[in-house]
Design a protein around this nucleic acid. Structure first.
Length: 254
DNA sequence: ATGGCAGGAAGCTCCTGA
């Protein structure tokens, strides 16, 4: 089973890219973030015509998550149960016996922002919920835009980013808190090219200059990690017109 | 030190993203 995560930065703008990529890469399950679409206008019919069913939880302008899958999905849950949040950032479904959790973790804006406090509280709620979710679903994958670069190797200029949002100590502590639930960073289970990133600022030709961060991740519980045979960043969509500022991450499970 | 870029909603500018 091939699973993937991609922050599309507007599914309305990126639907053509997604359909082209689904046809070429044929992932089984794709978690999408920043769809920026209300549920009433989600392009479920277009995806179904391409062979993919969709479940989604969206809103106008901001946020919005979806899972698209060639395999049947069941037990769909939106949000973090027990955590009231108007922002549509999580959706989960069971696919082929594995629990798939699609998450768009808050950005945080800056470490002195109220949004940063929201991010840390949100991560606390996510972690507490996942602990019980993993207990009930030993085969679980957490895919999404974490808005956290876990280590300095995941940052093009660690000195410039030191202590900044996406790289700060509390955020990295929260990432390690997720790992401590028994999750494994699938990307780091394999040798990777130097300067492997998943996001680049639209400004200053950052992609061309390899000035990025690795903030999109696929974390797997041990039973799934043991079946993982590959994980990579796919930059192929960056060559198209109007690319997303994020690249997909793909993991192959036996 | 600042702004650069992109998407969306609104409306000819601002907020957010990361």
């Amino acid at each position: 089973m091939k699973i993937a995560t991609w922050n599309v930065n507007s599914l309305k703008v990126r639907l053509g890219h997604l359909l082209e990529w689904l046809g070429r890469e044929t992932p089984d399950v794709v978690c999408l973030q920043e769809t920026k679409l209300e549920d009433a206008v989600f392009p479920a019919a277009e995806l179904l015509a391409a062979g993919y069913a969709s479940v989604f939880s969206g809103q106008k302008t901001y946020n919005g998550v979806a899972i698209v899958s060639r395999l049947p999905m069941s037990d769909v849950v939106a949000g973090i149960p027990g955590y009231a949040d108007e922002q549509k950032r999580v959706i989960s479904a069971t696919v082929a016996g594995s629990r798939i959790v699609c998450a768009y973790i808050p950005n945080g804006q800056s470490v002195d922002s109220d949004k940063y406090q929201y991010k840390l509280q949100w991560l606390t709620a996510l972690t507490a919920w996942l602990q019980s979710e993993i207990a009930g679903h030993p085969r679980l994958a957490l895919l999404g835009d974490y808005n956290i670069a876990p280590e300095d190797i995941d940052v093009h200029d660690p000195a410039a980013w030191a202590g900044q949002v996406l790289c700060s100590g509390p955020e990295r502590d929260a990432f390690r808190g997720l790992i401590a639930l028994g999750l494994s960073d699938s990307f780091r289970r394999f040798p990777q090219p130097e300067r492997s990133f998943t996001w680049w600022d639209y400004r200053m030709n950052a992609f061309r200059r390899k000035m990025g961060l690795r903030i999109d991740h696929i974390l797997l519980t041990t039973p799934l990690a043991e079946t993982c045979t590959a994980c990579r960043v796919d930059v192929s969509l960056r060559g198209l017109e109007r690319p997303s500022d994020h690249a997909p991450v793909i993991a192959e499970l036996a």
